[in-house]
């Protein structure tokens, strides 16, 4: 069970894996996540589901080497297995409940940051297949760290790339591109931002003035991921919510991002690793 059927290094930090997990693949929908335990003594690591094939029983995950556990995941070879995989977890994206009629011609803007491009992909693909019009902005530090560019181009109407250093697409941040698109007269009915918490915070601040509903997917800390431990709690609209069973997607304008950012750091001082250099937000 949970065998790694295929593995591709997307760049020096990010690895894509196809994993045999038939029950997860059969039930997965856009917006959901899963939990992987790399080996017997490993942690429960929440990862977004990047793609799924219920026929073959395969799910695709994308992992960025950040700390001990993500390295353990990335260092597994094709043919090896994970100790455990459980999912899908969390609510699917709200749009899957819309009728085909409603989806047809509906205009979406997706803003993906770094690894967040992975969970954006199945959502864009799903909407594309249901006749929606989807524009996607992918932001990365540099061209080397861009992922899913070609795959995304195949399923969206317009793809816009931004990099911090200008090595691909426009030089600058995803928020610059958001402002630019709106200034050019682009109109959207709905927007989704997925990426590092700090990026989602700034996309939320940037979009607020445009009156476009915005959804974010919160990558909080989790242990069980099934609504038992409360590690994932976030304040949304002044209320405590559990991202694992009530999320992970929430109305961006209601999220207390500063609290969420602080909570992500809770175990930074005690994580069992010594050489952690975060490349997410430099």
């Amino acid at each position: 069970m949970y065998e790694i059927l295929d593995k591709r290094e997307l760049n020096p930090l990010i690895t894509l894996m196809d994993v045999y997990a038939p029950r997860v693949a059969a039930a997965a929908e856009p917006g959901q996540f899963l939990i992987v335990i790399p080996d017997e003594k490993g942690e429960r690591i929440p990862l977004t589901i990047c793609d799924y094939d219920s026929q073959k029983g395969v799910i695709t995950i994308v992992t960025q080497k950040v700390g001990l556990s993500s390295k353990k995941i990335c260092n597994k070879s094709k043919g090896e297995s994970f100790d455990q995989v459980v999912g899908p977890l969390g609510h699917p994206s709200d749009f899957i409940h819309l009728s085909d009629e409603e989806l047809k011609g509906k205009r979406f803007l997706f803003v993906a940051g770094g690894l967040g491009t992975a969970p954006v992909y199945p959502q864009v693909k799903w909407l594309h297949n249901h006749g929606s019009r989807v524009d996607v902005i992918i932001g990365a530090k540099s061209s080397e760290l861009l992922i899913f560019e070609e795959e995304m181009r195949a399923v969206c109407d317009n793809l816009y790339i931004t990099t911090d250093d200008g090595s691909a697409g426009a030089k600058g941040l995803v928020t610059d591109m958001v402002h630019k698109l709106i200034a050019e007269g682009k109109e959207y009915d709905s927007a989704v931002a997925i990426g590092p918490m700090i990026m989602m915070k700034f996309v939320t601040l940037a979009m607020k003035q445009y009156n476009i509903p915005l959804i974010v997917s919160l990558n909080t800390l989790m242990v069980d991921g099934t609504g038992m431990c409360g590690a994932c709690r976030v304040t949304v609209g002044g209320k405590v919510r559990f991202a694992c069973v009530e999320g992970p997607e929430f109305d961006a304008y209601q999220v207390d991002f500063d609290e969420a950012l602080n909570r992500q750091r809770m175990y930074a001082s005690v994580e069992r690793e010594s050489d952690h250099k975060c490349n997410l937000r430099g």
């Binding site: 069980d224 431990c229 590690a231 405590v240």
Partner: peptide
């Protein structure tokens, strides 16, 4: 202050 770092549920503490 319940969502400050260092505040956990007994379930989380015990599950860990």
């Amino acid at each position: 202050g319940e969502n400050l770092n260092g505040v956990v549920s007994a379930n989380e503490f015990l599950t860990r």
